[in-house]
């Protein structure tokens, strides 16, 4: 008896959606797989661009911090341009802008790379995050405590060893909080993907809205997915900071009683 009168969770969801709620939960539940796939697309481009951009940023930041003649000005213009213009415009420039030129459409880069929205996005995102990372990493390198450097010199370290063993590890640690912001910013900015036909999380949300002429079901679902991702990322960074920045935490005073 209990079995026949009991409603399953799905019946309940359908009833709420139809009669009590402005949001159609059943429609969202039916397309969760698409949202999960969109999450993979979002993460793929975000993570790849952060990795490549981060690796690019290290030599650029060192060159900037050491005021390398010639290089410094060029890198500064690069970071100034990419930090001074919106990512959306940069992405449009790579996707719609480059396609306007005949010689680009006929070049060997067109078919495998520049004709693909995925690659255009990856290039724009990578350069953008490289610019931001370069600047705060430069700040961290320049702020290395003088005592650390003097001590290393006194030990007879060469410039390269000094950079590799002392300056960079110390700078990375101090840049970590700023970097966690950059990662979250990049995730948020990745919604730009949906404007150049890529089915990322927001792209799937807009697809759902478009398919069923909805106002916000797709957006709210996308929002929840982004929130979950940000929660995981910020938790991850906090754990990382606790490990790496443990030496910077205020220590309990040793008191004698």
């Amino acid at each position: 008896m209990a079995n026949t009168s009991e409603r399953t969770f799905w019946d309940y969801l359908a009833d709420v959606s139809e009669n009590h709620s402005p949001i159609d939960f059943v429609l969202i539940a039916d397309h969760l797989d698409k949202f999960l796939y969109g999450t993979l697309v979002t993460l793929e481009i975000t993570v790849l661009s952060l990795l490549i951009g981060g690796v690019l940023a290290i030599p650029l930041a060192i060159a900037r911090a050491q005021r390398q003649r010639g290089l410094n000005g060029a890198i500064l213009s690069f970071t100034y341009f990419f930090r001074g213009t919106p990512l959306l415009v940069q992405t449009y420039l790579f996707y719609y802008g480059l396609a306007q030129f005949e010689f680009i459409r006929e070049s060997f880069l067109w078919a495998p790379i520049l004709s693909k929205a995925w690659w255009c996005a990856l290039i724009a995102f990578t350069l953008n995050t490289a610019a931001y990372t370069t600047e705060f990493l430069r700040g961290a390198i320049e702020n290395t405590p003088r005592g650390e450097i003097e001590a290393a010199r006194a030990c007879g370290m060469s410039r390269l060893t000094l950079l590799w063993r002392i300056i960079l590890p110390s700078a990375f640690r101090r840049a970590l909080p700023a970097y966690s912001n950059e990662v979250i910013f990049m995730l948020h900015s990745s919604v730009v993907l949906s404007t150049i036909t890529i089915q990322d999380i927001l792209g799937v949300g807009r697809w759902l809205n478009g398919r069923y002429y909805l106002a916000y079901e797709g957006f709210i679902t996308a929002m929840i997915f982004y929130m979950i991702l940000v929660f995981i990322i910020s938790r991850g960074f906090r754990w990382w900071e606790n490990r790496w920045l443990a030496h910077l935490r205020p220590r309990p005073l040793l008191s004698t009683q």
Binding site: Y96, A99, R105, S115, A117, T195, T197, Q199, G203, R206
Partner: peptide, 18 residues
């Protein structure tokens, strides 16, 4: 199926061969 916000963007990408 590739989705666009406006029909003009569809034409743009059709004409460039995307």
């Amino acid at each position: 199926i590739v989705l666009y916000a406006t029909q003009e963007e569809v034409w743009q990408d059709l004409s460039t061969g995307r």
